[in-house]
Design a protein around this nucleic acid. Structure first.
Length: 449
RNA sequence: GGCGCGUUCGUCUAUCGGUUUAGGACGCGGCCCUCUCAAGGCCGAAAGACGGGUUCGACUCCCGUACGCGCUGCCA
């Protein structure tokens, strides 16, 4: 029997980082086994589930590159889907639940009380084998000792999670349920429901949770909990994917950089760790920087242009060769693309704005004659390339009897407005002679004395 | 409270009873490189929660305690 797994998020407004990893593990397992990944939207709570919320999930999964074999195509619950086990929105499956509940009622496996329908739960401990956790033996809690039955349909007619989840997994032919460990304690209920429906329960694999840096459960409002944050801050999806799978899973050989193909090849359920992991933003940032440095030129340029565009910088106003040359000076310098506008914005700005603090320390009277000297030297340069620019600057510094840095800092400030940025000589080369001389003249005019 | 799961450097992890002075990575500190900021190179500090067993031998197996997380809802 071929493997069928599913990712079944509830549209709460965005894709949670923990949910993204659950989706990732499901996707990896499906691909690893040559099985299918089903995406199901658990939107039974109509009041707070909107199409935008579902779109956020779909877009998040697409951004990560996690394609599903069956499921919705858009966030529209009544819209088209792919696959023959739909609908894939729970809000469209009311009849399925009703039919199943009728059957339960008829066989006296459920009963009505106070207007709600309750399932007759077994009255003893449940033992099951979890693919990750191992054998789990769950005794009845004190509350369950008194009354183990639980509600499957509310008095307002709404079916509850335990019921819909099981009915859908059953009808969608799910063979492996890979989900967060927060569901481990619910599993006996689900197994009992499957048995009541006369079918064996699927195999279960509960993955550990992702915690905040302080060890608390990462949820909703927590910093960095939304995948959208990483999309917006210019992370490379391949880096986020790589980092996420290292939370709770390890290739065991100290290799940390794995692309999607390698992950699919090596991922398997038994190697998933059993304990929760804390989310470490610093390591994600480092890893993202590594990915950025290794991206091929086209992809790097593409993502750069995108990031600049988001910041309101339109690179289309400039020659393609200029843009590429400018961006090349940023290679290996960024940890995230959100840093790019501030780092390379000067290449595309009409006027340079001097950092006030830096201007106060660099644009002082003594700097004026030195800058003037360099300006004249640069004006006489035929070949305006990095090598020549460096040689000339050092030469001028020598004549002035100062260290190179004494010239470097004011020149950088004059041309970029900042105290840090790409390699000075390379940046000057990209800017070009005319522009550099113009910028130096402007700086000279701004320096007192 | 009850039930379940977990516990190796600050963090992510390797180790699946002896090959280990417990390895790698992030972060942190130092040095080098250097036009700034990064990157890169080198070096360093840093861990088996605690207590009992089992065993010739335990981080690794068992029990207890502590701590953490989860579930305990007519939320999902």
């Amino acid at each position: 029997m071929s493997v069928r797994v599913r990712f079944a998020p509830s549209p709460t407004g965005y894709l949670h980082i923990g949910g993204a990893r659950t989706a990732l593990f499901n996707w990896l397992y499906a691909r690893h086994c040559g099985g299918k990944l089903v995406l199901r939207i658990e939107d039974t709570d109509a009041a707070r589930n909107t199409q935008e919320a579902t779109d956020a999930i779909l877009n998040g999964l697409r951004w990560l590159g996690l394609a599903w074999d069956e499921g919705p195509l858009t966030g529209d619950a009544t819209g088209a889907g792919r696959g023959d086990r739909g609908p894939y929105f729970q809000s469209q499956r009311r009849e399925n639940y009703q039919r199943r509940v009728e059957a339960l009622l008829q066989h006296d496996l459920a009963y009505e009380r106070d207007g709600a329908i309750r399932f007759r739960m077994r009255r003893e401990a449940t033992v099951f084998e979890d693919l990750i956790v191992g054998e789990v033996r769950r005794e009845l809690t004190d509350r369950e000792q008194e009354d183990p039955d639980f509600v499957i349909v509310r008095s307002d007619g709404q079916p509850v999670f335990h019921l819909t989840n099981v009915v859908d997994d059953l009808e969608m032919g799910i063979t492996h349920v890979i989900r967060g460990e927060d569901h481990l304690s619910n599993t006996p209920k689900h197994i009992a429901l499957f048995e009541a429906f006369g079918v064996p329960a699927p195999k279960y694999a509960h993955i550990p949770l992702i915690l905040n840096p302080n060890g608390s459960k990462m949820s909703k409002r927590d910093e960095g909990a939304s995948l959208q944050t990483y999309v917006e801050e210019g992370y490379a999806p391949e880096a986020v994917l790589n980092y996420l799978c290292l939370l709770g899973w390890s290739p065991k050989d100290n290799q940390e950089f794995l692309n999607a193909d390698e992950l699919v090849e090596r991922f398997d359920l038994p190697q998933v760790l059993r304990h929760n992991a804390r989310f470490d933003l610093a390591k994600l940032q480092w890893m993202n920087g590594q990915y950025l440095a290794r991206l091929n030129d086209d992809r790097f340029h593409e993502l750069c242009v995108h990031a600049l565009g988001r910041a309101g910088i339109d690179t289309n106003r400039f020659p393609v060769a200029y843009v590429k040359a400018a961006l090349d000076t940023c290679r290996g310098k960024l940890k995230t693309f959100s840093e790019l506008p501030g780092y390379a914005g000067f290449y595309f700005a009409d006027a340079v704005e001097y950092d006030p603090e830096a201007a106060r320390t660099q644009f002082v009277a003594e700097a004026r004659p030195r800058l003037l000297r360099l300006r004249e030297a640069y004006a006489g340069l035929g070949d305006f390339n990095a090598g020549m620019l460096e040689a000339q600057l050092k030469n001028t510094a020598g004549e002035l009897g100062v260290k190179a840095g004494v010239l470097v800092h004011p020149v950088r400030l004059a041309c970029t407005g900042k105290t840090s940025g790409p390699s000075l000589y390379h940046l000057l080369e990209v800017l070009g002679k005319a522009r550099v001389l113009e910028l130096l003249d402007r700086a000279l005019a701004a320096i007192p004395g």
